[in-house]
Amino acid sequence: MTEFTLYTFLAASLGLIAIGIGGVILSRNLFRIVLALSIAEAGGNLLLVLIGFRHDAIAPIIEPGRALTTMVDSIPQAMVLTSIVIGAGVQALALALAIRARASYGTLDMGIMRARMEADINRVAGAESAASLHAPASSSTLLTERKA
């Protein structure tokens, strides 16, 4: 275990975080966004464990009869232990939200879902939906009532 391995793990964790965040930003499918979030979380946990690592240390287990030597930092490990379980909870919540969103809007595609959501909001608000971003509905009833 040399210094090279540490940099390899650092590249792994940073790469996992980058891939995860990139997937969250760039994906259109809601299910794939949840997957990318899970990957980013794994990379962040790996980075946290890597912070407390020493290449000349042993695992933080104290045995009777063994002389105390240098151990890796166990505080980030305990925190990461919590973070893994919380990550599973967050993933379950995100999947539940995805299931509810698909039940409401009938699709997992973010673009289609956004269009249907805006149409829903406009219908409830009584405003006519904008034709496009460049030609917005200028005579929205909400705005005219507010002015009057």
Partner: peptide, 18 residues
Amino acid sequence: FYVILRAPDVALTEAAVG
């Protein structure tokens, strides 16, 4: 990776939960 980084408890949890 957690096993290689000498964090066996985290490795157990990650394998079971993650």
